[in-house]
């Protein structure tokens, strides 16, 4: 980095003279080093996909998954520190449980995202804690249709049609922009998501990775689940084939 904090980066509770909080920016760096995560909001559903970098060949397949289920109809994927992702998912589950307890119905994602945003933001205020080293993509399908949100380490959150976080986000975003998201079917979206993840992985080819894809929509009975095996395999094969023709 060009301007390293020089004394103003030791605590999240101190501004630098030009009004920045370096600890939050460093948390952003932790996200940028992580494998890419994308989320697609399509015609009648949500697809989440993760480039899960495998740091050791000794790991059991499907260990350390980065897409988590928060409620029946809410999925969450994180880029950054895996353990921080677990913490945010547990917090999200608690928030959902509390909403269910109060209102006896499935929680709205907007409420959950707002509350998680407040939670993440609270970790940017005190010298005794560090901000979350993750960006989080949350997706749901409810009576208002599909919706997709991203929460950043600063605590801000936005709604998106297509979202990308992590190392390959720039390329992933350009690829997402080329798609007509609102016209894609769920299974088409899975194929596209897989293609994009394989594509952005090209730059870090020396590292192994595991593709992780989940969806919410009519095909999954409006619950958040990982995509069925046949579709997953088809997506991987087609993604690899598309790479050959891309260059």
């Amino acid at each position: 980095m060009t301007s390293i904090g020089t004394g103003y980066d030791l605590s999240a509770s101190t501004y630098s003279p030009d009004g920045r909080i370096f600890q939050i920016e460093y948390a952003g760096k932790a996200v940028e080093n992580s494998g890419t995560v994308i989320g697609l909001k399509v015609k009648d559903g949500i697809v989440l996909a993760v480039e899960n970098l495998i740091h050791s060949k000794l790991l059991v397949p499907e260990a350390n998954r980065r897409i988590q289920t928060v409620d029946r109809h809410i999925g969450l994927a994180t880029a950054g520190f895996l353990a921080d992702g677990r913490q945010i998912a547990n917090r999200a589950r608690d928030e959902c449980a509390s909403q269910r307890d109060l209102f006896s119905r499935g929680p709205e994602l907007k409420t959950i995202v707002n509350r998680l945003g407040l939670y993440v933001q609270a970790y940017t205020l005190y010298s005794s804690v560090r901000p979350f080293g993750i960006s989080t993509i949350l997706g749901t399908v409810d009576k208002n249709g599909p919706s997709l949100h991203v929460i950043e380490p600063s605590g801000v959150s936005f709604g998106y049609h297509g979202a990308a976080i992590g190392k390959g986000r720039q390329l992933a975003k350009t690829e997402l922009e080329k798609l007509k998201l609102s016209e894609l079917s769920m299974s088409e979206a899975v194929l596209e998501a897989a293609r994009i993840i394989y594509l952005v992985h090209e730059d870090a080819k020396e590292k192994d990775f595991e593709l992780e894809v989940s969806w919410i929509g009519p095909e999954s009975n409006f619950t958040h689940v990982h995509v069925p095996n046949e579709l997953y395999k088809e997506a991987c094969t087609k993604a690899k084939a598309a790479l050959e023709t891309f260059d």
């Binding site: 998954r65 988590q68 289920t69 928060v70 409620d71 029946r72 589950r93 959902c96 449980a97 269910r100 307890d101 006896s104 619950t223 990982h226």
Partner: peptide
């Protein structure tokens, strides 16, 4: 019914 609903949601979340 609410207890059981939350029980099932927790079970789903465990994946």
């Amino acid at each position: 019914q609410n207890l059981l609903e939350q029980l099932i949601v927790d079970e789903i979340s465990a994946q």
